[in-house]
Design a protein around this nucleic acid. Structure first.
Lengths: 210, 210
DNA sequence: CGGCTTATGTAACCAATGTTACAATACTAA
DNA sequence: TTAGTATTGTAACATTGGTTACATAAGCCG
């Protein structure tokens, strides 16, 4: 754990802070599909992602989903932080998109470290900053783009975070993430295939030239 | 200015911090329609809103707008903070929705105070927190609601922040904020009028029972 | 008053997306 | 192997929202 921590966070956190993290943090290794957090859950701790990808989803009252963004190594969940502050329930769902390693920090430490360590403060501010912009760009996509463009963006982003030009998703999976319907996604994917941009298979698809 | 400041922020900031703000902040009084910030502008300072309402807009590359949320007294602009951090350009446009009073803080002080004053730190964190949730809820509206529901929500919110059941907007104004077209908004407003929820006039409309 | 501008009402039409229904195919487990 | 299930393809249709076009009305200013 110390190894991983130093590798990912060594250059941004002071030695002393790293030591504290080692003492109070708990190492966690989870499999793809593991659900970290559900909407309405009380926050247990704050995650520092070491490796892997976590996807953050929003859901409306009918259970319709929408992918907000991915967390990658070096990221933390600002939503979690935002929730800690107000001692509130989670507004989002967090699911491991790939196998992942992370360190959970007890939420009490957040406030303490914020006064104590400048590097921690910067890290927290920076996370908020990044996440606000991420949310903004998600909002842009939904507000200003049509579904075909959103689909292309989704495939690119997914390929980027998983470092794999093969997208291991069914059409239904994609439809959920984009808050659309399976038929619509199948239709658009078929068009992309006809344009030579992707190749469709059962349960996965290849990105050729997006 | 000291009067206003103490009234709005006296109970959340230490005396000492208030004094610092008085020393380095500049008081500003602006009229409805005043444009604080344009997309691409470099951030000059951070606003502490004393009175009035500021609306925060997002724009896409074609110049299409979208209302993100309103800032009210006691609020500050997290987007601005987020931009300061990265020494970046503004991602949003800020326009006075009503006449407004505010204090501008030089951005250099942000970092300094964050280390020095716990109350400032909490304020900044809380602003991020509030803004993240605000953005989330904007996103919910766009992703999960239809235009008629969004329109009703818009009218309610606008009546709330302006404390006025008369909405002083043309249909075109509303269409811009909701990123829709005038004809669509006229159509939906007419429906709301037929349902007895609002009464339409030239250049304004009354909310009867939304 | 009479012409100009702005705001609103309305119809007809179009495009994008969502829905329903069903067939075809591929995989899975008994 | 076979029945059952999950996935994909596709057609037909509905709905929402956007576009174009034009009429009407209200306010403004000479």
């Amino acid at each position: 754990m110390i190894q991983d921590l130093k590798e990912e966070y060594g250059n941004i956190f002071e030695e002393e802070l790293i030591n504290e993290i080692v003492q109070v943090g708990t190492f966690k290794e989870v499999q793809e599909g593991y659900k970290f957090m559900e909407i309405g859950d009380y926050i247990r701790g704050m995650p520092l992602l070491i490796s892997g990808v976590i996807k953050i989803l929003r859901e409306d009252e009918d259970g319709d989903e929408l992918l907000l963004y991915y967390l990658e190594k070096g990221d933390t969940c600002s939503m979690t932080m935002a929730c800690c502050m107000g001692d509130k329930k989670s507004e989002i769902r967090a699911v491991a998109e790939t196998d992942a390693k992370l360190i959970m920090i007890p939420i009490q430490k957040m406030e303490e470290w914020t006064g104590k360590y400048k590097s921690w403060r910067n890290f927290v501010f920076n996370s908020y900053h990044v996440r606000l912009n991420e949310l903004l760009s998600t909002l842009d996509n939904i507000a200003f783009q049509k579904m075909d463009e959103r689909l292309i963006g989704y495939l690119k982003e997914k390929a980027r975070v998983t470092k794999d030009n093969i997208i291991h998703s069914t059409h239904q999976d994609i439809a959920y993430d984009l808050h659309s319907s399976r038929v619509v996604i199948s239709r658009l994917l078929k068009k992309l295939e006809e344009m030579g941009k992707i190749k469709l298979h059962r349960n996965y698809l290849e990105i050729l030239d997006l």
